[in-house]
C-alpha cells in the first residue's frame, strides 16, 4: 500500500504494509526517518529553508519549511514510540539548475538549512542522494526501513 506524501506535507506511520512515497523532489528536500525497533517511519517533503520568509505561512504551512517541518516530523514519530537515538535518517533532493552566480540555488540552501538543524540537534545523516540536475522520487518501506530513490531516465538507487 503506497501512501503519497505531497509537497509541503509529511506522513508518519507504523503500518507494516505501507510504503511512503514522495514525488518530484527538485530543489525540495525529502527527509525519510525510521526507528527499526518500533518500525515507525515518516517522510517530510519541504520546499524552502526558513519559515521566517513569511510570517503567516509558517503557522499556516509549517511543513513548507525546513526549520518548522523537521521538528514536526520527529515529534510525530515520537508519538508512535520512536526514540531519537535509534532513528535512521536518509535524505534526497536539493537538485539545482545550472547557475553560475548562485542566484537560483534554492536546492543548496534547502540542504544547508537541514544540515544546520541536524548539527544543532546531534542528528546524523546515514545516507543521502543530493544535488545534480535530476528530479527524484523517494520511497520508504515501513516493514523493513528500506529507503530508495528513483531518478527519471536512470532507474532506482538504494539509500
Amino acid at each position: 500500500m503506497q501512501i503519497t506524501v505531497g509537497v509541503a506535507d509529511m506522513q508518519v506511520t507504523n503500518n507494516p504494509q505501507a510504503v511512503l512515497v514522495t514525488h518530484s523532489l527538485g530543489s525540495c528536500m525529502g527527509v525519510a526517518v525510521y526507528d527499526p525497533q518500533v518500525r515507525v517511519g515518516g517522510i517530510l517533503h519541504y520546499m524552502l529553508p526558513e519559515a521566517s520568509l513569511d510570517g503567516n505561512k509558517s503557522t499556516e504551512k509549517p511543513l513548507m519549511f525546513a526549520d518548522t517541518g523537521i521538528p514536526l516530523l520527529f515529534k510525530e514519530c515520537y508519538r508512535y514510540g520512536a526514540v531519537k537515538s535509534r532513528m535512521i535518517v536518509k535524505i534526497a533532493g536539493g537538485s539545482q539548475i545550472m547557475d553560475s552566480g548562485c542566484f537560483f540555488n534554492i536546492g543548496k540552501r534547502n540542504y544547508a538549512a537541514l544540515r544546520k538543524i541536524f548539527l544543532r540537534n546531534n542528528v546524523l545523516i546515514k545516507n543521502e542522494d543530493i544535488g545534480g540536475f535530476s528530479p527524484r522520487t523517494l520511497y520508504l518501506q515501513i516493514s523493513t526501513g528500506k529507503v530508495w530513490v528513483k531518478i527519471t531516465g536512470e532507474g532506482e538507487k538504494l539509500l
Partner: peptide, 17 residues
C-alpha cells in the same frame, strides 16, 4: 526548480543572473 512534472531534461537549464 521545484521539480514537479519534469521529464528527462529535469533541471538542466541555465539560470541567468
Amino acid at each position: 526548480i521545484l521539480g514537479a512534472n519534469l521529464g528527462v531534461d529535469g533541471l538542466a537549464y541555465r539560470g541567468h543572473p
